[in-house]
Design a protein around this nucleic acid. Structure first.
Length: 399
DNA sequence: AACCCATGTAGCC
DNA sequence: TGGCTACCCTGGGT
């Protein structure tokens, strides 16, 4: 998080409507639930999203039972050629030197900390956790429990405890958390029980997972605001080395780098603008902070590196997801070596940062849908989650 | 400004 | 098994 709150008003308000737990009953005096079809069709809750959710809970097995094979080793497909790479500049970085942005350049060709070729998809690591399209997926940053948090377009949030197989509900707990699509989920390692969710409805909610208490922490009121883009902002990311440096991506076709210290002034001026030909759906810093990866509807993934991110490489990657899938967003793995991004062939392309090209595709016959949104486990290297528009979550692990 | 089109998934028959 | 339809309300083209 940036050191400056950016003028956001964090005062707590009484929620307009308490989010409601809708999974199988578990004793908790603080929340409503479980809901029934009668609830769904009567009173204020009679909206389509809730009905869909109830129907899903009543009818659908939560783990795909059609899967028969026990274990499917990753069918890694070697990319035949480096398609459409343009190397504008991939050289000339200065080692061990702090530059204008306060970001240390690391040009070492370090060995990747994970063998991406060994990443595989086990059937027990596949589950349908939600109805409808998953908009955001996150691992709980915890070494002890493999817990996944996913949010869908209806405003539901699911918790999937991957370690509680065979238990009631297969370790999947579903909450009605928001009234619109979940735009983001934030879990912090320092306090695992606090999970923030943001929503298209303008609300930011904090869930205390231990007590199952939900609080509205932010309701869209600004004491100040910045106009950074001409169109919708699709992603915000902060540099791990210098949290004053922020990256945004926008439907206006640009990804921008900002210095929050100067953005606080009247006029916002970006440090750098990367122009794409179409909407930019993500701009994420690499774990070390030395690189920025952008994903755009113009069918490119951009990698910015070098001194003040002046070296730009545009890598061809087909990103036309159409109307029913969430746009792809290339995420970084566990170091600066690779970027993971979904493809339209029900696979996950792994882009090598140093080679500036796709080096392999993770594929599996058990994937019935295209994974669009991803998260790399912050504690477990090689554990990657992908979420689909059908509510499934796939979790790859490396051997 | 109005309209049209493509896109993938799941559930139903 | 396969064909049909609802979903959805984007983003680009005409």
């Amino acid at each position: 998080m940036p050191p400056d709150s950016g003028g956001l008003d964090y005062s707590v308000e009484t929620p307009d409507r308490s989010p409601t737990r809708i999974s199988k009953p578990r004793p908790s005096p603080r929340v409503m639930g479980p809901l029934t079809m009668r609830d769904a069709y009567s009173g204020t809750e009679s909206d389509r999203a809730l009905i869909d959710t109830i129907l899903f809970l009543e009818k659908k097995p939560q783990v795909d039972v059609s899967i028969k094979k026990k274990f499917d080793r990753c069918e890694a497909v070697k990319m035949e050629q480096s398609d459409g790479i343009s190397h504008d500049s991939v050289k000339g970085v200065v080692k061990d030197e702090y530059l204008d942005y306060g970001i240390k350049i690391d040009d070492k060709e370090t060995e990747s900390c994970v063998d991406v070729w060994s990443m595989g998809l086990k059937t027990e690591n596949i589950a349908r956790v939600l109805p409808g399209r998953i908009m955001a997926v996150r691992f709980l940053p915890c070494n002890d429990v493999r817990m996944i948090v996913a949010g869908n377009k209806f405003g539901n949030v699911a918790f999937w405890n991957m370690d509680s197989k065979g238990e009631e509900g297969d370790g999947i707990f579903l909450y009605r958390h928001h009234t619109g699509p979940i735009s983001g989920i934030l879990c912090q390692q320092s306090c695992l029980s606090k999970i923030y969710t943001s929503c298209y409805d303008g609300f930011l909610r904090l869930m205390n997972a231990e007590k199952e208490v939900f609080d509205l922490v932010y309701s869209g009121r600004f004491s100040s605001q910045w106009i950074l883009h001409e169109d919708r902002i699709n992603s915000i990311d902060f540099n791990s080395q210098n949290p004053n440096i922020m990256a945004t991506s926008s439907t206006d076709g640009t990804a921008c780098l900002w210095d929050l210290r100067s953005v606080n002034a009247d006029k916002a001026k970006s440090l750098k603008i990367l122009n794409h030909n179409r909407a930019v759906h993500s701009a994420y810093f690499s774990p070390s902070g030395s690189f920025l990866a952008t994903t755009s509807a113009d069918n490119t993934v951009g990698i910015l590196g070098g001194v003040n991110f002046e070296d730009t490489s545009m890598i061809y990657h087909y990103n036309q997801t159409g109307r029913w899938l969430s746009p792809f967003r290339g995420i970084w793995g566990w170091d600066d070596s690779s970027i993971f991004i979904g493809n339209m062939k029900r696979g996950v392309d792994v882009i090598s940062c140093s080679q500036r090209r796709s080096i392999l595709t993770l594929q599996s016959s058990h994937m019935s849908a295209i994974p669009c949104r991803f998260d790399a486990h912050p504690c477990k290297v090689g554990m990657l989650a992908g979420a689909t528009s059908g509510g499934q979550v796939y979790v790859w692990t490396s051997s």
